[in-house]
């Protein structure tokens, strides 16, 4: 079954067309990476899939249903890009993870023992168990991302949507994180959509790659996304510098293979 079907989607703000003619189908249990330049519309596309934004034209189906219904069924877990949260917000890690269960707990009810256990389990999966009772604002950027990933996972979603989850995480931590996602994907048959800046690192983990800059320039196997043709359409001339810099040594290596 298809986890996600997007047809003829476009999205405009005022008279600015942010997304145009997007068609995208993703099967259940697949790991999709989305790359593209800043301002290319990646976050906007994720928010439309989640139902936070309404498309100007076109349709989005999540397991055959509308995003709003998918949310009601708790099908999707979301890790947003930069959460602008006050460092002094009164929340511990486990409080944050528990909020991921609020929909499931329902109105006029409060978290109980089993919910705390589920939250603890999600933190353990992310290697954050020891910081469960630490104030969220006191954590490092990487630790916050892991807590938010635990939050996205705690309700056992079928589709996990991550917007640049590796921002602020060092390279080693980042690879660990991708490994972890890969394992979860296999173990739980999760469908994962992840936006990332780092094409090189992404290539080794995802099943499919989509290149987005206002419209989809490529969707298919990750290795072929790294052709100069695709990349230069996506990023313009700057791609040359990127491909040959140390930062993207891995892209070059993958390209040669």
């Amino acid at each position: 079954m298809n986890a996600i079907e997007i047809e003829g989607l476009s999205y405009s703000i005022g008279n600015k067309e942010v997304l145009k003619d997007i068609n995208l189908t993703l099967q259940e249990g697949r790991f999709l990476g989305i790359v593209g330049p800043n301002g290319g519309g990646k976050t906007t596309l994720l928010k439309i899939i989640l139902g936070i934004l309404k498309p100007s034209t076109g349709t989005v189906r999540i397991k055959g249903d509308s995003p709003i219904n998918a949310i009601k069924k708790g099908l999707m877990g979301y890790l947003p890009q930069a959460l602008r949260i006050d460092l002094n917000f009164p929340a511990t890690s486990i409080n944050v993870v528990l909020t991921g269960l609020y929909g499931e707990i329902g109105y006029m009810r409060f978290p109980s023992r089993p919910h705390y256990e589920m939250a603890m389990e999600a933190l353990r999966t992310m290697g954050m168990e020891e910081l469960a009772f630490e104030i969220f604002g006191n954590l490092s950027a990487g630790q916050q991302q892991r807590v938010l990933a635990a939050r996205a996972l705690v309700g056992h979603p079928e589709i996990l949507i991550l917007d640049e989850p590796s921002t602020g995480i060092d390279v080693v931590g980042q690879e660990d994180f991708y490994h972890l996602l890969k394992r979860l994907q296999k173990r739980l048959n999760l469908t994962i959509i992840m936006v990332s800046h780092d094409i090189g690192a992404l290539t080794g983990y995802v099943d499919e790659m989509a290149c987005l800059n206002r419209t989809l320039h490529y969707h298919g196997s990750p290795v072929h996304a790294l052709t100069e043709d695709v990349l230069s359409r996506l990023y313009g001339r700057k791609v040359d510098i990127m491909l040959h810099s140390d930062a993207c040594e891995k892209c070059a290596r993958l390209k040669r293979e």
Binding site: K47, I52, I71, K72, P80, I85, R151
Partner: peptide, 15 residues
């Protein structure tokens, strides 16, 4: 509490 923490997360939680 969740809406105060982050409205988009609250939305995706079905609130």
């Amino acid at each position: 509490y969740l809406i105060t923490f982050n409205e988009e997360l609250a939305f995706v939680s079905g609130i």
